[in-house]
Computed example of a mutant assay.
Amino acid sequence: MGAAKFLDSPQGRRIAYHRSEGKGPWVVFLGGLKSDMEGTKAVHLEAWAKARGLAFLRFDYSGHGESSGKFEDGCIGDWHLDTVAAISELTEGPIAPVGSSMGGWQALLLAKAMPERVHGMVTIAAAPDFTEDGYWANFTPMQKLELEKVGHVELPSDYMEPYIITKRMIEDGREQLVLREPLELPFPVRCLQGTADTAVSTETALRLMDHATCDDMRLNLVKDADHRFSDGPCLQMIEEAVQDVLGEA
Rank of each mutant, 00 (worst) to 15 (best):
G173W: 12
V118C: 12
S9P: 10
C234G: 00
L147T: 04
T140H: 07
E203K: 03
E239T: 02
Q193C: 10
A3D: 15
Y61H: 10
L235I: 08
E72T: 08
H152L: 13
S68H: 02
W48R: 09
F29E: 08
A126G: 14
Y159Q: 01
Y163A: 04
V43S: 13
I164E: 04
G232F: 03
G31T: 15
S101D: 03
E148L: 09
A199V: 02
Q236V: 12
I124P: 07
V43G: 05
A225N: 15
F187A: 08
H18F: 06
G104Y: 06
K5E: 05
G39Q: 15
V84Q: 11
I95N: 02
S201G: 14
A4W: 05
G63E: 00
W79D: 06
A196C: 01
R174A: 14
N138Y: 06
D133N: 14
A199H: 00
H227T: 13
E175N: 05
M237N: 12
E146V: 06
L110T: 10
R207N: 03
V118T: 12
G134P: 02
G173N: 15
A4H: 10
E46Q: 13
V118S: 13
A86E: 05
K149G: 03
K34Q: 15
H227M: 14
T123Y: 07
G69V: 02
E203L: 01
A16N: 00
A3Y: 08
C191V: 11
G99L: 01
V98Q: 11
H227G: 12
T91G: 15
L179Q: 11
C75W: 01
L108H: 05
C214E: 11
L177I: 05
F229S: 04
V98E: 09
D197L: 07
H80V: 14
R228P: 09
S88T: 13
L110C: 03
T131D: 05
E116V: 09
G74S: 15
E148P: 02
W105P: 03
S101N: 08
G53D: 11
G31E: 11
V84T: 05
L219A: 06
P156Y: 09
E21V: 05
E92T: 13
P188T: 10
M1P: 13
E181C: 06
R218W: 07
E21R: 04
A107I: 00
K223I: 11
I76Q: 02
K167W: 02
K70F: 10
E21G: 03
A196W: 00
G24P: 13
V98C: 12
G151S: 14
Q143L: 13
S230Q: 12
S35G: 14
E175F: 01
A16K: 00
K112R: 15
R190G: 10
A125R: 13
P97I: 04
G24H: 07
Q143G: 08
M1Y: 11
M142R: 00
W136L: 15
L183M: 07
R190T: 11
E66G: 02
E239K: 08
V43W: 05
L54H: 10
W79I: 12
E92W: 08
A3T: 13
N138R: 09
D73Y: 07
K23N: 03
E146K: 11
G120P: 00
L179I: 10
